[in-house]
Structures are given as C-alpha cells and as structure tokens.
C-alpha cells in the first residue's frame, strides 16, 4: 500500500498525458477521417483508391510496427522525431485510418432514397450532405465513435516504448524502482479501466440524447 500511495501521483500524471494525447490526436484524426471518407466515396477511382489502400495499410499492420516505423524507421532518412511528435503523428495516422471507415459506413447507412429525395427537391450536393446525410449518419455513428476513443486510449499504452511518459511509462519506472510490479501494473490497469468507463458512460449519454431526435 505504501508503494501505491507513493506512485499514485506519477500514474495520475501519466493518465493526464494519455488523456490529453488521446483527445488531441482523436480530434485531428476525426477531421481527417471525414475528409478521407468523402474522398473515398466521392473522390473518383484514383483518390478513392489511394484512401482505400491507406486504410488497409493502417488496419493491416500491427500498431507497434507503425509506431516504430515512424519513430525508428524515419531516422534512416535523417528524420529524428521527439517522443511526443512521433506519438502524435502515429496516433493521428492510425486514428485517421479507422475514422475513415467509421464515417464511410455512417454515410452509407443513410438510405439512398433520402439523398435522391433531397436531390429531386433541388438541394445542392453540399446542402444534401450538411442537412440530410450528416444529421442522420451522426446518430448511427455514435457507438463507433465511442469505441474509437477507447481504441485510441488503449493505443497510448504503446507510447512508453518510444519514451512518452504515459501511464505505462510511470508504472514501469515504479515497478523497476520498487521491484513491486504487482501493485503498479494493477494501478495502471485500474487507471485505464476508469478512463475507459468514463468514455463509455459519456458515449451512452450522448447516444441517448441523439436518439431523441430520431
């Protein structure tokens, strides 16, 4: 128990760093994901194909390998990224791949009749997207967006491998220093559980609110 109180603040600071990075990188990734999904759906075969293979690469390669390619691999070309920079870059690159799929699926779930009706009423493509497709797609996408955030949060566990001072990094430091890995990794697990729970609860509340508009 002594160890637990000693390292509680270190784990908490790691947790803050994880949450911060998750939020920042997810926001950027979601924006890029929207652009990617639109490019994939309406961008023609070349651009759409590029986005398709980008998504496949992100989904097909192990997370660690992607992170290492950015952090270690790029040094071969003289690009030496700091741990934070490599972490953000990877989380954004990874998140974008998954976000594209979420938005693409969400947009495709809206029945084509909706689009055709709006088209027949003379709305422009942009207006159709903005007023018809997005509001309806949004509700269906919420559960996926929640799991997206949890996925990104879990991905931050890998960042200690490139020296980012997250929860795992602090737990590892503590485990090495005190030779008490038992309690320290339990604390790490607990920290992730709590954060994941908060995300899940927030997601459910948003789903409930969004469902009211249906």
């Amino acid at each position: 128990m002594h160890v637990a109180s000693l390292y509680a603040s270190a784990i908490a600071s790691g947790a803050l760093k994880d949450v911060g990075l998750t939020i920042v990188s997810s926001l950027i990734a979601l924006l890029l994901g929207i652009a990617g999904a639109l490019a994939r759906l309406y961008g023609g075969s070349v651009i759409g194909g590029l986005v398709y293979w980008y998504v496949e690469l992100i989904r097909g390669l192990p997370a660690i390998l992607q992170l290492f390619i950015i952090f270690f691999g790029l040094t071969q070309f003289g690009i030496d990224l700091s741990p934070v920079a490599a972490s953000v870059l990877w989380l954004v690159a990874y998140g974008t791949g998954y976000a594209v799929e979420i938005f693409r699926a969400g947009i495709m779930e809206v029945p084509t009749g909706q689009r055709e009706a709006a088209d027949a009423l003379g709305l422009s493509s942009l207006k159709i997207l903005q007023k018809i497709i997005v509001p309806q797609a949004w509700v269906g996408m919420l559960p996926n967006l929640t799991s997206f955030l949890v996925l990104q949060l879990k991905n931050t566990t890998l960042l200690y491998l490139v020296g980012y001072a997250d929860i795992m990094y602090q737990a590892r430091l503590g485990a090495d220093a005190t030779e008490q890995p038992g309690i320290l990794y339990l604390m790490a697990a607990l920290a992730y559980l709590v954060i994941a729970l908060v995300i899940a609860v927030a997601g459910l509340r948003m789903e409930r609110r969004a469902a009211l508009y249906r």
């Binding site: 949890v150 949060l153 879990k154 795992m168 890995p181 038992g182 339990l186 790490a188 994941a196």
Partner: peptide, 22 residues
C-alpha cells in the same frame, strides 16, 4: 467487460511481471 476494457499490453505485464511477484 473488465478484460475487454484493459489494454492488452497492460494485461501482458500483469501476467508476466505481477504474477511473478505473487
């Protein structure tokens, strides 16, 4: 629900390091 919410790497360290201490 609990196992699903914990990152795999944390579980791995629990199984490898924490169990060893026990």
């Amino acid at each position: 629900e609990v196992i699903r919410a914990i990152p795999v790497l944390v579980l791995l360290f629990l199984a490898y390091y924490s169990l060893a201490q026990a």
